[in-house]
Computed example of a mutant assay.
Amino acid sequence: MNGATPLIEVRNLQKFFGPASRPVRAVDDVSFEIHSGETLGLVGESGSGKSTIGRALLRLVESTAGSVKYRGEDLGSASDSRMRFLRSKLQIIFQDPYASLNPKMRVRDILGEALHTHSLVKGKAATADRIAELLRLVGLQPEHGARFPHEFSGGQRQRIGVARALSVEPEFIVADEPLSALDVSIQAQVVNLLCDLRDRLSLTMLFISHDLDVVEYLCDRVVVLYLGRVMEVAPTQDLFARPLHPYTQALLAASPTPDPQVKTIHIPLKGDIPSPVNPPSGCVFRTRCPYAIDACAQTRPEPRAMGGGRFKACIRDDIPSLAPP
Rank of each mutant, 00 (worst) to 15 (best):
N2C: 08
G3Q: 06
A4G: 08
E9Y: 03
L13E: 02
A20L: 13
V24I: 15
V24T: 14
R25H: 15
R25K: 15
I34C: 11
T39D: 00
L40A: 13
G41K: 03
G41N: 10
V43M: 13
G44P: 03
S46M: 10
G49A: 12
S51D: 14
L57N: 09
L60F: 14
K69D: 07
G72A: 09
L75E: 11
G76Y: 15
F85V: 09
S88R: 15
L90C: 02
I92H: 01
Q95V: 02
Y98T: 07
K104G: 00
V107P: 02
H116V: 12
H116E: 14
V121H: 05
G123R: 07
L135S: 11
V138D: 11
L140G: 01
Q141A: 07
G145D: 06
R147V: 03
G154S: 07
G155L: 12
Q156C: 14
Q156M: 15
G161N: 13
G161I: 02
V162F: 14
E171F: 00
F172R: 05
V174M: 04
D183E: 07
Q189M: 13
L194N: 08
D196L: 07
R200N: 12
H210M: 09
V215A: 01
Y217H: 15
D220S: 07
R221V: 11
V224C: 12
G228A: 12
P246E: 08
P246N: 09
L251Y: 14
S255W: 04
S255A: 15
P260V: 12
P260K: 13
V262E: 13
P276T: 13
S281M: 03
T287L: 05
A305R: 00
G308S: 05
F311A: 15
R316M: 06
D318K: 04
